[in-house]
């Protein structure tokens, strides 16, 4: 991914109301401690050399942690540059509920995992869905206008943050 695409992804995230922070893999654990409002619950990020055990983020998720946590930390399988979208895998670790239940979701996305647009993202998703996997394309915070005006934070998170890991 080019630097330009990462910047475009950041501006799309910004348009979707998602604040982004760039970090290098080696600094990820420290960055999470700075960014995460505890109590936090998480699932393994799948990035070499990074363990949530070194952070304030509690693992594994339990029902109580899902309900109590202010923040949920999950990997983001890919980002869609055009819309500032997270592709979240419904994995057995619990990325789906951890990204859904707490009021704040911190998604960790590798800068090398960006797709330009939905068409590119679906090219890859077509294979993984056929393989039985599931994914959520999440863009910004949950919202409703059903109560007479726009309110963020309904059944899903009120605040979404992106941590972009620059892995060379």
């Amino acid at each position: 991914m080019t630097v330009r695409e990462v910047s475009r992804f950041e501006s799309s995230l910004d348009a979707a109301g998602v604040a982004a922070t760039r970090v290098e893999a080696a600094d990820l654990a420290d960055a999470l401690d700075r960014l995460v409002e505890p109590p936090a619950v998480g699932v393994p990020l799948g990035i070499d050399g990074v363990s949530l055990d070194e952070t304030v983020v509690e693992t594994p998720p339990t029902p109580r942690r899902l309900k109590r946590a202010e923040t949920g930390v999950t990997p983001v399988a890919a980002g869609v540059v055009e819309h500032g979208t997270f592709v979240l895998r419904s994995d057995a670790n619990g990325s789906e509920p951890v990204s859904l239940y707490p009021p704040t979701h911190v998604g960790v996305v590798r800068a090398s995992d960006l797709h330009a647009d939905f068409t590119a993202a679906f090219d890859e998703l077509e294979g993984s869905l056929a393989g039985g996997e599931s994914a959520i394309l999440a863009t910004g915070a949950s919202a409703t206008a059903d109560m007479g005006e726009l309110v963020h934070g309904v059944h899903g998170p009120r605040t979404v943050r992106a941590v972009l890991v620059e892995d060379r």
Partner: peptide, 14 residues
């Protein structure tokens, strides 16, 4: 785009 586009291949792995 909508906030969530869920692409579920149930029963899901969650």
């Amino acid at each position: 785009v909508a906030t969530y586009l869920s692409l579920l291949t149930p029963p899901v792995d969650s």
